[in-house]
């Protein structure tokens, strides 16, 4: 399902969810600027921000954002050791904005 439609459906049914969006990319990165991933409190998600490389880390960040109610701007790539462990196999760098949906 389209990530925004999924996000809207989750929120409309009273669930807590967040939206992750690719804001900037450097080097080769698999998904273009603007790509969305909707994340549910439980960890279910729809859409993608990297084609599989960093989705797990973004889901964790999104759940934290849902818990705190605060948005976060995150960066993954070769310059970030934590992200290196997550592994953006293509060697690019990507900035992802994660925002909880709030009333």
């Amino acid at each position: 399902m389209d990530p925004l439609a999924q996000l809207n459906a989750w929120v409309a049914s009273g669930k807590k969810a967040a939206l992750a969006t690719v804001v900037q990319t450097w080097g080769s990165s698999p998904r273009p600027v603007g790509s969305h991933m909707a994340v549910l409190e439980s960890g279910d998600f729809a859409g993608s921000v990297s084609g599989g490389c960093i989705e797990g880390a973004v889901v964790d960040a999104a759940r934290e954002a849902i818990a705190s109610g605060k948005p976060r701007l995150l960066e993954y790539g070769v310059s970030n050791e934590a992200a290196w462990e997550v592994g953006l196999a293509c060697g690019g760098r990507v900035q992802v904005f994660v925002e909880p949906v709030t009333p």
């Binding site: 996000l7 809207n8 939206l19």
Partner: peptide
């Protein structure tokens, strides 16, 4: 993201 904004989108 405010729920209102999501609805508008």
């Amino acid at each position: 993201m405010k729920q209102d904004v999501l609805r508008q989108i």
